[in-house]
Simulated scan of single mutants.
Amino acid sequence: MSTTLKLALVQSSLHWENPEANRKMFSEKINSLSEDTQMVVLPEMFSTGFTMSPQNIKESEGPKTVKWMQKMATDCGVALVGSIVFSENGKNYNRLYFVHPDGTFQQYDKKHTFTLAGEDAVYTSGNSKLIVEYEGFRLCPLICYDLRFPVWARNVEDYDALIYVANWPKPRIDAWNTLLKARAIENMAYSVGVNCIGEDALGYKYPGHSAVYDALGNQVVFSNEEGICYAVLDKEHIDFNRNKLKFLQDRDEFSLK
C-alpha cells in the first residue's frame, strides 16, 4: 500500500459552453503530465464553464465527457476528478466524477447549489457524500459552494483528504483561501482546491488560487497562474499528527436531516 499520492492540479481557463474544445484542451494538458502523476484534478464544470443554461448543452455531451474521462484515465494510468453538466430524466446535475485508472468511476452530485447565481433553480441538488478509496487514501470530493458548509464536510468518515473542484470568482477569493485552510485544520486532513482562471463569457473573473493545505493547515502548494502544479499527499503526515494531537477524537456527534 502506498503512503504517498502525487496530484496534478490543472488550473485552466475554460471554453464557454464548448465541451469538445475543453476536452481537446484538457487532453493536451493531461498528456503532458509528469509520468509519476497518480491523480489529476480538474475545475468545476470543466467541460462548459459555470453555465446556468444547461439547455445549451446537448444531453449527449454528459456521457461523451464521461467516456472521455475514462479513456484519459486508462490511457494515462491516472485517476481523473472533475465535475460536469450532466442531464438525465429531465433533470440537470452539477455532477463530479472520480474515474479510476481502470475506467471504473464513482459520482457525486453537488449538495449545495449556488443560490446567488440561481444554480438551485436549474440543477438538482445531491444528498449524499462520496468517500473514495484510492492508492491507500480515503478521499472526499466536493464541489465549490460546498466549501462554505463545514458540517457537510466534517470528517466523520476518517478520510485523508478533501478535494474541492471550483469556479470561485475573484471578488470572494479571500474566502476561498481562508476556508480551504480551515477545512484542513478542523478535519486534520489535506484540503485540496482546484479553481479555474481567466474570464468567462458572462464577464466573471476567476483568479485561480488552486492550493493544497496539509493536516495542520500549512500550505503545500499554491498557484495564481494558468498551468499545472503538483503536490504530494503523505499518509504518514496524517497518521503522525492525528496520533500525536488526537483532535478528531474530541469531535462532536451529530446527524444531518
Rank of each mutant, 00 (worst) to 15 (best):
G62R: 02
D36W: 10
G49L: 03
S27R: 04
S87L: 03
A21V: 14
C76S: 12
G90F: 14
V85D: 07
T48N: 00
H100S: 09
G62H: 01
E44W: 09
G77Y: 04
D36N: 15
K29Y: 06
G49Y: 01
K29D: 02
S60V: 11
T48E: 04
V81R: 01
V99L: 03
F26E: 00
P63Y: 07
G90Q: 06
I84C: 04
A73G: 02
G103S: 05
N89K: 14
T37V: 14
K58I: 06
V85W: 00
D75Q: 10
K29F: 05
G82A: 09
T74H: 11
D102Q: 03
L96Q: 02
I57W: 01
F26K: 00
A79Y: 01
S60C: 07
H100R: 15
K64C: 11
Q106T: 11
E44H: 12
P43F: 00
V85M: 14
M45K: 08
G82K: 04
P54I: 07
L9F: 10
Y108D: 06
N31R: 14
M72H: 02
E88Q: 12
S53R: 13
S27E: 10
F26V: 03
N56K: 13
S87Q: 13
P63M: 08
E28S: 08
K58M: 09
A21I: 05
E88K: 10
P54T: 04
E20W: 10
N89C: 10
L80V: 12
E59N: 14
E61M: 12
N56S: 14
N22W: 03
M39V: 13
G49I: 04
E88N: 11
Q55Y: 12
V81A: 01
D75V: 05
V85A: 07
Y108L: 15
N22Q: 05
F50A: 15
N89E: 09
W68Q: 02
Y93E: 04
N22Y: 04
Q70R: 14
W16G: 05
G82D: 03
Q11P: 12
L96M: 08
E59W: 05
L96P: 01
Q38E: 09
K64W: 07
G77L: 07
E17S: 06
A79E: 01
S27P: 03
E28I: 10
M72G: 09
K91Y: 10
P43C: 01
R95F: 10
Y108I: 06
Y97E: 00
N18H: 13
N92I: 10
S83F: 08
E20F: 08
V81F: 03
K71P: 00
Q11S: 11
K91A: 12
V81I: 13
W16P: 08
R23N: 12
L9E: 06
V66T: 08
H100K: 15
V66G: 04
E88S: 08
Q38C: 04
T51S: 14
E59H: 06
V40I: 15
V85K: 06
K110R: 15
F98T: 11
I84S: 05
I30P: 05
K29T: 15
K67D: 10
F86L: 14
F50D: 12
I84M: 14
Q106N: 11
Q11D: 08
N31M: 11
G82C: 06
W16S: 09
L80R: 06
